[in-house]
Nucleic acid binder design. Structure first.
Lengths: 335, 335
DNA sequence: CTGTTAGCGCATTCAG
DNA sequence: CTGAATGCGCTAACAG
């Protein structure tokens, strides 16, 4: 491995001079600067970021922790985060918690030992509290994405889950649906709680009495257990429409319905939170509340970098991004 | 920041002893081991991976370079890579080249200075040659994914593009289509060349004379210019079916057709390479040649880790993964 | 079983 | 404008 000492020797200067040339710091005569540069190229010198970080106490690394890299919402978010990071000279250390607190904890430990400059943290849920606290204890700046964690005061970028849910359910009500089921994420997650509230609000505004036998509390990726859906369909007064609290649940619901020989929207109307990325465009089908995922990542990263670089005031910031109702063809008026 | 010296002092031992406790190396009396452990916990000590890497010359970091994080094929691949990496104790440094050689080069420079242990490299295309060479020159182990680069001898995990393409086109021919267009990626990319070959082979096997006016050479993400499609449709003898060389192109094609008031499959049959991840399941629509994306990532990572850890022989390995024809409803027999 | 010395590659002092 | 000494946090090699 080529070091600054190799360069220094061959260029007939001290290592310090080489360091200064690399960092464009201090005053160096144009002549030696050129000579040093030339030697660096000849020897294909590449600065060792490790050594540099060890002394500067700065890695230019930011950890992006998300819960599901398979979900288009998070990949689009990751894209926004990466673009913003690259622009500011940071690289992304990637981690995928799988909605699993233990895995999340493992990654937090790794993050801590890696000495990243900050963390963009999409938490698995309320229990992420301890993991976030761990970061705080070690003074690692972070920004929370998508899900608010009770008891954690930090910069946060959120979607308006309540309103998005309301819009979706109101759309169903406007089509005449009265028996509307909610297939929800875990109550351990703020967005799931808010979508539940929005759902109830819309019902009440529509003069419909909420019926908790129509509400399933699963997890955002847990549509394996189809018996839950089975029970819904076996009710005396079964739903005519289903609101899935995110895109993955909608996939599960629709597949299950299909296995039972039921078609969307003919036999059941379905809407959901979050769109499907590029795939959503090819066969406009599901009516969704689409969130600006790219902005989640981009804005979150900007907030984080401001924190890291000390450009932010002490007060934490809370950004709430609206969702957009995109009406397609997965619902049908009740005749 | 807490260091081993803080621990050493408080535990009344030398720093070296602490280091040995951390690494479970050398012989330490159970008693001191416990004492040291206790102090570490009290002080919330976390080893500094930077310092450790600087001396061990090992970062336990692997860079994953892909061309499009928005494409479900690559996110699923990333998932496979991440799972395999985590299992072996490596973390992922993430990079997205956007099919852009310059961006790719930027990231290679970053990769080099970060001293990652290896790179999982999904190249933008043939011109990635120089970037790969750069890695070779600096002795960074890497595995090439998805696209073969002429002149680069390395472990590689590929899909069978030729056969996949042939299957798709044969499917169309079986339905009576004779005028079959190919909307292809750049000829700079091995998979695009092979899909073109497979397409031609299927035509010839079907007794159809290839007609290059039916072939569009774009880029895998470049379906902005719809005039190209316009020309196809204006031909004296226009196509009745389109083979899009990847999923993103299929999205563009279908959107363009729709803007022109043409429906799939009624007015035009469409098939493509690569599926759409979870979204592909919700409304089975596009007939595709689906590749085992997760396996690409997982196997690639395994090969890479073997290389890094010296468990691989010198000979480079070449893994070819088959694709699966999934017939859905985006094609229709020619009446 | 434990400690001392030296050095990984670089940048921050402080002197010239 | 340039250089020498020192240390970032840790571990390999050698001593004891």
């Amino acid at each position: 491995m080529i070091t600054i000492y190799d360069i220094a020797e061959k260029a007939g200067v001290s290592a310090m001079t080489v360091s200064r040339v690399i960092n464009n710091t201090g005053r160096i005569s144009e002549e030696t600067r050129k000579r040093v540069r030339k030697v660096m190229e000849e020897l294909h010198y590449i600065p060792n970021a490790l050594a540099r970080s060890l002394v500067s106490q700065k890695t230019n690394l930011i950890s992006l922790l998300i819960t599901d890299i398979t979900n288009p919402f998070y990949t689009t978010l990751a894209r926004g985060a990466e673009d913003a990071a690259k622009k500011a000279g940071y690289r992304l250390l990637f981690a995928n918690s799988d909605e699993d607190y233990e895995k999340e904890k493992d990654y937090v430990d790794m993050i801590l030992s890696t000495r990243v400059d900050g963390v963009l943290f999409a938490p698995a849920g309320d229990h992420s509290h301890d993991n976030l606290l761990q970061l705080q204890k070690h003074q690692i700046p972070f920004v929370v994405l998508d899900r608010e964690i009770p008891g954690i005061d930090a910069d946060v970028v959120l979607g308006d889950s309540k309103e998005g849910a309301r819009n979706l359910v109101e759309h169903l009500i406007a089509q005449g649906h009265q028996r509307i089921a909610l297939v929800n994420g875990s109550q351990d997650v703020s967005t799931a709680r808010l979508r539940y509230i929005g759902y109830n609000e819309a019902l009440q505004l529509g003069g419909i009495t909420p019926d908790d036998s129509l509400v399933l509390h699963l997890g955002y990726r847990d549509f394996h257990d189809e018996t839950a859906l089975h029970e819904l369909l076996q009710l005396d007064d079964p739903p005519t429409a289903i609101f899935a609290a995110n895109n993955m649940l909608a996939v599960g619901v629709i597949q299950s319905l299909r296995q039972r020989g039921l078609q969307v929207p003919r036999d059941m109307s379905v809407v959901c939170f979050d769109d499907f990325g590029p795939a959503g465009a090819i066969n406009p089908f599901l009516t969704v509340a689409s969130q600006p995922a790219y902005q989640f990542g981009k804005l979150g990263m900007q907030l984080l970098i401001e924190r890291i670089e000390g450009a932010a005031s002490d007060a934490t910031r809370r950004i709430m991004l609206p969702s957009e109702l995109i009406v397609r063809s997965s619902t049908q008026p009740l005749s």
